[in-house]
Nucleic acid binder design. Structure first.
Lengths: 193, 193
DNA sequence: GTCTATAAAAAGATAGAC
DNA sequence: GTCTATCTTTTTATAGAC
């Protein structure tokens, strides 16, 4: 089992139970590693394990979301008039990442629990900001006003995070599914359609 | 110090740190009660304390939100054409309850953390459902299609919960403030205006 | 109703053998 | 790189005096 696989297990646990809800015993059980072995891979203990999980999420954001949105190749021309295709790709990735709404968001869990120290919280804030800015940049390139573009980026974040909370609360992924499906249109409303 | 005051302290702690993040030591510190005294008031221990906090939130919902929305007096006539005043009252109450966006939502924290047992989760699901249904009922009374009305109720929940998450993530209450301010209009869009 | 004292269990973390 | 064994601290919870 590779280190990446261990981190994936950590991510699964932390986003499911929160930082305080995860114990080394659970981690040991899920990874199959003894506690002492966990400290070999993560000398900083539980805190370092949570950081590793956060790193994986932020890397997912960079690789699978920010890159798509910032991509100026191929679709560039049509995107300038209507970037809906980019937002559809973004939503597909997001839907997959959150397992159709059944997973929770590590950022939300850590932030709501106030378990993250200043350094972690800064990295979470960075993630939210970057995602919003990347959406806004696409919309500005398509001709939208900058203030409105940023607002729509925020609204997209709000919709995704809120839908995850509601779907978990209702034990029904339908709200999340609806949000994911409507989001591209909403982001592009009033544009070249 | 009355029992209600203790429960308010419990609510403050649980929504700030989550179920697992709160320890009896913290509770003892914040309430000024010794641990043994806490068990006098809440024989069921930490689980019962969390239930009491949830009860207080759900009672707030019934008293300050559901009642306003279901109220058929006074404003009834004008509300039939445009219920925006009711939604403004709802948003004012919500804004106060969440301390302008600086508080988190106990439902969201418990649900995301998966700390709540089936019974608690059912009470949280009830809360979400009732709030959504109450909004939808107002909109239906004002002439909106039932399916669309329910969708708008869900969207309101999504907006509130998502804005809380984002505002905490960004350490900036502006997104929550904007959502609260825009919500009444959004709920009533396309109606008697 | 509150306290001191204490128990019992579980938590995070380390030493040292293999 | 993984393990067993152990340590320390913290946590939940209780007994019993006042």
């Amino acid at each position: 089992m590779s280190k990446q696989a261990y981190v994936s297990t950590l991510l699964k646990l932390f986003r499911q139970f929160g930082y305080e809800g995860v114990t080394l015993s659970k981690i040991s059980q899920e990874t199959g590693l003894g506690k002492a072995s966990l400290y070999h891979h993560f000398p900083g203990g539980k805190a370092e394990m949570a950081e590793a999980a956060l790193t994986q999420v932020n890397q997912w954001l960079e690789t699978n979301i920010l890159q798509i949105l910032a991509d100026t190749a191929a679709l560039a021309e049509s995107c300038e008039t209507n970037p809906i295709a980019k937002f559809q790709s973004m939503c597909e990735e997001t839907n997959r990442f959150f397992n159709e709404g059944k997973n929770s968001c590590l950022w939300a869990v850590f932030v709501m629990e106030q378990s993250s120290d200043d350094l972690m919280h800064d990295r979470i804030r960075w993630a939210f900001s970057q995602w919003i800015a990347a959406i806004a940049k696409v919309l500005v390139a398509a001709g939208l006003d900058e203030t409105l573009a940023t607002q729509r980026g925020e609204d997209a974040m709000i919709a995704i995070q809120g839908a995850l909370v509601l779907s978990h609360g209702l034990k029904d992924v339908a709200p999340f599914q609806r949000v994911i499906q409507q989001l591209p249109q909403q982001l592009c409303q009033g544009m070249g359609d």
